[in-house]
């Protein structure tokens, strides 16, 4: 049975890239939220096993979305997938409870390894 990943990112490119990177694996892209709010709605709908979450997005940014996702499910598995990765931001994310980080751009093997790490 496929494991499900939800992509929350305002860039359609990232959705395409994640989908392409997971072709032929046991991961299936369950959906795409174009901002934090839509991403939360998609999570409630799909209950994906792992979420890739961007930081800078319209309507609701990734850190705010992560707080709400942890309220919905304290065990939710989130990979912060962002072009930004400075220490101030990473510390904010760790404080919220995010444990997994991947910086853009990514290679398919790196994403697959990070998903496996988050899923365990």
């Amino acid at each position: 049975m496929s494991k499900k990943v939800l992509v929350i990112d305002d860039s359609p490119f990232v959705f395409k890239a994640v989908s392409k990177a997971l072709e032929g694996t046991d991961w299936e892209v369950a959906g795409h939220g174009l901002d934090g709010q839509l991403g939360i709605e998609k999570y409630i709908e799909t209950r994906a096993d792992v979420i890739t979450l961007d930081v800078t997005m319209p309507v609701m940014d990734g850190l705010e979305a992560a707080k709400k996702l942890f309220e919905i499910n304290p065990k939710v598995k989130i990979i912060m997938l962002s072009a930004m990765g400075d220490e101030t931001l990473l510390n904010q994310a760790r404080t919220i409870g995010i444990k997994h980080f991947l910086t853009k751009p990514f290679q398919p093997a790196t994403l697959q390894a990070k998903l496996a790490e988050a899923f365990e």
């Binding site: 860039s11 359609p12 490119f13 990232v14 395409k16 800078t56 962002s82 072009a83 930004m84 990765g85 400075d86 220490e87 101030t88 931001l89 910086t103 853009k104 751009p105």
Partner: peptide, 28 residues
């Protein structure tokens, strides 16, 4: 899709620049 890809390329480049700059200055 060209513009979608290039927008993300610029976002990755400038996001990396912001990361290095913020780390170098020790703040946002």
């Amino acid at each position: 899709d060209l513009h979608v890809y290039l927008a993300e390329f610029a976002n990755m480049f400038c996001g990396r620049a912001a990361t290095h700059i913020n780390n170098a200055f020790g703040k946002r």
